[in-house]
């Protein structure tokens, strides 16, 4: 099956999540092709997992003053600070049947595409179940997957640069999580592409693209008008709403 690849683009948090869900619906209805998209978050944003509490995880006052958007994802997993210039996010949305049946195995497959991309710029990364990618034992990429109506959606981020001060300021890091891993700080367990390569953000995108499309039939494309309209609707009605973002 031919993939559509939507090249690196920037949207706000609400539209980014709206596009992912619009594509889930489009593939469910047979009107959208399997799609790989790459994007950044403009303005910078925090996304939280489906089951997290916004107020527990995020310093929303600080976000407001820094003009950082806060959004709840459709997928589980943890809170992520998406710095506009500090990372690249991807989404893979495709019929479930194109992937291994097991969720854990399909994480491994798609994370393998990220790992292949990083390898092209000389970064030796490895998959760390359940949903992380590590370089020298430090997390460089977090990933989250959902499946509904026969469609798989996996999105994930690859850290390029890391504004640790801002990240610390906007996320409430849980003591339990840190103590379990016997580490003192987030700084010690997270890394970034710039620590291992002097590639530009655009260069990282090219590397990831090559890793994702390897061995696939694909063409570069864009959203259809229908997809764009539905994504905007979801952005406004769901992802910008307090009911959704503060539901836990």
């Amino acid at each position: 099956m031919e993939w559509r690849v939507i090249e690196l683009e920037s949207h706000d948090a609400y539209l980014n999540m709206g596009i992912d869900e619009a594509l889930l619906e489009g593939i469910r209805d047979g009107t959208s092709p399997p799609t790989i998209r790459f994007y950044t978050w403009k303005p910078s944003a925090v996304s939280i997992g489906r089951f997290q509490s916004m107020n527990d995880e995020v310093n929303t006052e600080r976000c407001k003053s820094l003009e950082i958007d806060c959004v709840r994802r459709i997928t589980g997993g943890g809170a992520v600070y998406h710095d506009q210039k500090g990372e690249i996010t991807y989404s893979v949305i495709a019929p479930e049947k194109m992937f291994p049946e097991g969720i854990r195995e399909s994480y491994r497959e798609i994370c393998g595409w990220v790992i292949n991309g990083l390898a092209t710029i000389g970064i030796d990364a490895e998959f760390a179940p359940i949903n992380d990618i590590l370089v020298k034992g430090k997390k460089i990429s977090g990933n989250a997957q959902t499946r509904r109506n026969g469609v798989l959606l996996q999105h994930g981020t690859i850290l390029y640069d890391l504004d640790i001060r801002t990240m610390f300021g906007v996320l409430n890091i849980s003591r339990e999580k840190i103590s379990d891993k016997m580490i003192k700080s987030v700084e010690e367990r997270v890394t970034r592409v710039l620590n291992y390569s002097n590639v530009t953000q655009e260069g990282l995108y090219s590397a990831l693209l090559s890793g994702f499309v390897r061995g696939k039939d694909y063409k570069i494309g864009r959203l259809t008008e229908t997809e764009e309209k539905r994504a905007n609707e979801l952005s406004e009605s769901v992802y910008k709403s307090k009911e959704w973002n503060f539901s836990r």
């Binding site: 489906r50 089951f51 589980g76 499946r147």
Partner: peptide, 15 residues
């Protein structure tokens, strides 16, 4: 009761 966290549950609505 509210169950929260960074785990995964499929389908998510089944929480």
């Amino acid at each position: 009761i509210e169950i929260m966290g960074d785990f995964f549950l499929h389908p998510e609505e089944s929480i």
